[in-house]
Nucleic acid binder design. Structure first.
Lengths: 241, 241
DNA sequence: GGAGACTGTGTACGGTAGACACAGAAGACG
DNA sequence: CGTCTTCTGTGTCTACCGTACACAGTCTCC
């Protein structure tokens, strides 16, 4: 982790380093991008638990130790595969309409990518170095909320909440469950458990007997609540101004 | 995994099994509860990554293989330690006031527990068998939203979103970061990265230059937005009735 | 034609979860 | 009392994980 510029805290990180060809020695058989895409493929196929240096190495036809010529460790591999998987963020003029329409469209875009790579909602949490594309997605999200009269901090909070909501929804959805059963329930078992102990959980029993709406309408409800909440916050700001 | 009742899907799971003394053989030196509490202690001290069968076994003075006499595998150990850590959920009459005050109080209670055990927000996701206490917390949350005119499904969605919000907030807070920097950013590095590439991320740059409010006010903002959103949904229901 | 830098390989280490066989303890039953 | 049976805890073993390190081979620069 050696800083080169002094201003860029992650200059030493593969994600933000411009790849400069070494002068001497044998050419490397792969690019960092190929490694990243192979890792994405492994995670898509075998899940996050099935992702190991061994498997990724086998995918590209190398020994696992050769991978360490491309990334410093597994965390860095994860970082580059995230930035490879999220693809390009929407351009500034890609989203049109009111802020609300833009937010809905943005959520749909994130949902698309995170559905294509179901492990993404699980790894885009916690302390780590983000890649340029991932930061680009956050940038795009911040842009969406600019028309609202929120303070910068509130705008960022809104972005955070939007991503959080998508994560919660999509992470559990990818687990093959209807969204709420797994939060913090997890699995259809909660429904059965409640049914087996109805006297102990009356409020839940009442909820569980509901026939249930289709997933799409649940998705709408959550997002709508969130955006309504932001709108209310914006109104508060407007009023106090 | 042998069902005993037929109606209870997790009857074979330690979490829902009433512990019946075996007739013959030596007495076991520990109770399941002691094992669970030891595991909680390890996780509190060494974090989730530091939690291994080995460490927990050492904590209680056993070999790791002896642990398998108490739990079937590590997942089951995690399950029992979750239910041990969350403690008793609030009683039906423990929360008072309007639904909004109750929701705020409930959020505070969850926050307390999840702060005491910072690994909790990370493990209470995904497909798994919940314990009786954890289900009790969900039950309590559902009760809070009963006064609102939401449909059962919407009520459950609201609960899910509330937990999701708390998880996002507390998981990142425990990582030693201010909430939003880690979502999906992660770490103060995002701030620095944006600063180093200001021309590329203008919207983010504008946000980052903000001095920033104290954490407590960010907490309020998020929760307030969420509850405002629920209130709006309830108003929609009222209006259409 | 070196010298030196770089890539990919092989080996080794300490960690993980868990399968399995076994020694010993303790109640059940003759 | 002795024996049978069942249960607990131990020790050993396998397969895998991330990764440190030494080394062989390859390429460019001087």
């Amino acid at each position: 982790m050696s800083r080169t510029t002094g201003t860029d805290p992650a200059a030493g990180h593969v994600l933000w380093r411009t790849p400069e060809e070494p002068r001497r020695g044998p050419r490397r058989g792969l690019t960092l991008d190929e490694v990243a895409r192979a890792a994405v493929e492994v995670a898509d196929r075998d899940g996050l638990a099935g992702l190991s240096m061994q498997r990724v190495a086998a995918e590209v036809g190398l020994t696992k130790m050769a991978l360490y010529r491309y990334v410093a460790n597994k965390d860095e591999l994860e970082a580059v595969m995230i930035d490879a998987a999220v693809e390009e963020p929407p351009a500034p003029d890609a989203l049109a309409g009111t802020w609300r329409e833009q937010a809905e469209e943005f959520a749909r875009l994130v949902s698309d990518v995170w559905t294509r790579h179901p492990w993404l909602p699980w790894v885009t949490v916690g302390e780590r170095v983000m890649g340029p594309r991932e930061v680009g997605w956050v940038e795009a999200a911040v842009r969406v909320f600019e028309p609202l009269g929120l303070t910068p901090d509130e705008r960022m909070d809104a972005v955070s909440m939007l991503f959080g909501h998508l994560r919660t929804t999509l992470a559990t959805a990818s687990a093959g469950t209807r969204p709420w059963t797994a939060d913090p329930a997890g699995g259809s078992t909660m429904r059965d458990l409640v049914a087996a102990h109805a006297e102990r959980y009356p409020a839940l029993t009442a909820v569980m007997t509901d026939p249930g709406r289709p997933v799409v309408s649940r998705w709408d409800f959550g997002l709508r609540c969130l955006l309504d909440g932001f709108a209310a916050a914006a109104r508060r700001r407007e009023g106090s101004r």
